[in-house]
């Protein structure tokens, strides 16, 4: 389907509100992370938002790693 409009796609087809609630920003060990909640009450790291390059070398801060939701501070 081709839509001939100058409106961006996200304005024509707005995303479901629930999709936004899946991800959030939390701090873990003082490092900001974009996380996604899992069914087990943990947070799975989607993106490491730190500017310190060494934080990217630690396996526990890598995308896909999980940590308990209670360990997160906001």
């Amino acid at each position: 389907m081709i839509l001939y409009t100058m409106m961006p796609e996200y304005l024509v087809f707005p995303t479901d509100r629930a999709a936004y609630e899946k991800q959030k920003l939390v701090y873990y060990d003082g490092i900001p992370f974009l996380v996604q909640a899992t069914e087990t009450g943990e947070y799975e790291i989607v993106q490491n938002l730190s500017t310190n390059p060494y934080h990217f070398l630690e396996a526990k801060y890598a995308p896909g790693a999980r940590f308990p939701a209670s360990a997160a501070t906001s």
């Binding site: 060494y54 630690e58 995308p63």
Partner: peptide, 23 residues
């Protein structure tokens, strides 16, 4: 777990302090 997350078994460890940050 490390393989499923990163595709490798170990990641180099270093002290977490640097004078250059990257954005």
């Amino acid at each position: 777990a490390a393989i499923t997350q990163l595709g490798q078994t170990n990641v180099p460890q270093m002290e977490l302090d640097t004078n250059i940050h990257c954005l």
